[in-house]
Amino acid sequence: MSKIDSEISKIKFTCKDVRVAYSGKEALHGINMAIDDRGVTAFIGPSGCGKSSFLRVFNRMNDTIAGCTVTGEVYMDGQDIYAPSLDPVLLRARVGMVFQKPNPFPKSIYDNVAYGPRIHGLASNKAELDHIVEKSLQRAGLWEEVKDRLKDSGTGLSGGQQQRLVIARAIAVSPEVILMDEPASALDPIATARLEELIEELSQKYCIVIVTHSMAQAARISQRTAFFHMGDLVEYGLTTNIFTNPADPRTQDYITGRTG
């Protein structure tokens, strides 16, 4: 296990007083937070506390939700991602996302992975595209299972395979960050274990932010953990500290199973 020392690791995102509101009703009340480059940052907290809302701040997916407004400042590598000059389309190419429910396109496995590289012009010919698709599927740990049926439907795969397919789809565009919203919620323990291995591996190269309901999972895979409660960031720090020595009673209650 190659844990990256978070003390010396670079900062990827800096958030200042980030607020998210749906139709005027505030769901996140001013979050200040810095997220490390490389490694895994986990968001935990009871249902409805705003983890998904906050995750969508980083790739501006909240923009696509009618009635959702985001205020505050978010910097990625020192650049304001909510600046008017910044194109969210480009941002999303740099910040990939894996959704809670696997959502492959109703197209072939190949086209699912090739879609991103195609629209961004990452391959200049078919061979290059084939290479990107193969590499992405390999990194997502799906290649061996699907290499003989790339023309088959992406939605015909099992839930766990679909989740790995959308991960392959996300990494195919060579993002810098991968946001994952409860990626293991629909998976059995074996598939979850494989997914965690994959996340571990990907964290060498990418900044990964993951929302999870499983304390054990957060403890296993993340270097840093943020605990949210009712729209507030209650506690944030090294995962080992949060789980062994939580500072806030609400965190304590949550991780010991008394709330949430």
Binding site: N59, M61, T64, V89, L90, R92, A93, G96, M97, F99, K101, N103, P104, F105, P106, Y115, G116, I119, H120, V166, R169, A170, A172, V173
Partner: peptide, 15 residues
Amino acid sequence: PQSIRDGALSVGASH
């Protein structure tokens, strides 16, 4: 399903 559109947007497709 909205999730299909979200998937496309998340890899950097324009609206």
